[in-house]
Amino acid sequence: MHTLVNGLIAGAAGTSALNIATYLDMVIRARGASTTPQRAVSKLADRAHLDLGEEEHASNRRDALGSLLGYATGAGAAVCYGLLTAGRRPSCPVGVLTLTALAMTGSNGPLMAMGVTDPRQWPPSSWLSDALPHLAYGVTAYAAYELLRP
């Protein structure tokens, strides 16, 4: 039970750090928000034959559901980390890199499988926009998880 709760808390902290890093990047580079989460929600809704409503309502639901998917991914990555490391205490670099990789795989893997994005086609700026916030996630989730360990 502790692994699940600690993972959820660490995932929430890490996801908050990821969002802050993303928003800071948007401010610094004056770039727009990614539409990838909304496109993923559209694909999932289409595959599940779900009607999200009239366009204005559907757009708002896609925005909200896209954000919720991000929180679910962050929570899931940290819970997986807790399960993988049960009974062990990875060093800081190993823990941070593991959490970063879990979060990146958890977010980009399904997006690639659905055909929403293909990181192999990304320019370096897109890789930085993705990797740095995920690293912020890894650092924060690791610190939170370690602080929660008995």
Rank of each mutant, 00 (worst) to 15 (best):
G14T: 05
G14E: 02
G14I: 04
T15R: 00
A17V: 10
L18W: 04
N19F: 07
T22H: 00
Y23N: 10
D25K: 08
M26A: 11
V27A: 02
I28N: 01
A30G: 06
R31A: 04
G32W: 03
S34P: 02
T36Y: 01
T36A: 07
Q38P: 01
A40V: 11
V41G: 00
V41W: 01
V41F: 00
S42C: 05
K43Y: 06
L44Q: 08
A45W: 07
A45K: 05
R47Y: 10
A48S: 11
A48P: 09
D51G: 13
D51M: 11
L52K: 09
G53N: 01
G53Y: 02
E54Y: 10
E55Y: 06
E56K: 15
A58W: 06
A58P: 10
S59M: 09
S59D: 14
S59F: 07
N60A: 15
R62N: 02
D63E: 14
D63A: 11
L65R: 03
S67E: 15
S67M: 13
S67Q: 15
L69A: 15
A72M: 06
A72I: 13
T73S: 14
T73E: 12
G74S: 10
G74A: 05
G74H: 03
A75D: 00
G76D: 02
A77G: 07
A78F: 05
A78N: 08
A78G: 07
A78H: 01
V79F: 02
C80A: 15
G82T: 02
G82A: 00
G82R: 01
L83I: 12
T85M: 09
T85S: 12
T85W: 05
A86S: 15
R89C: 06
P90N: 12
P90S: 08
S91E: 14
S91D: 12
C92H: 13
P93T: 12
V94A: 15
G95Y: 03
V96F: 03
L97I: 14
L97T: 15
T98Y: 02
T98W: 02
T98K: 00
T98Q: 05
L99G: 11
T100Q: 12
A101V: 13
M104G: 12
G106C: 10
S107Q: 12
G109D: 10
L111Q: 09
L111A: 13
L111C: 04
A113Q: 10
G115P: 02
V116D: 07
V116A: 09
V116W: 01
D118R: 03
D118L: 07
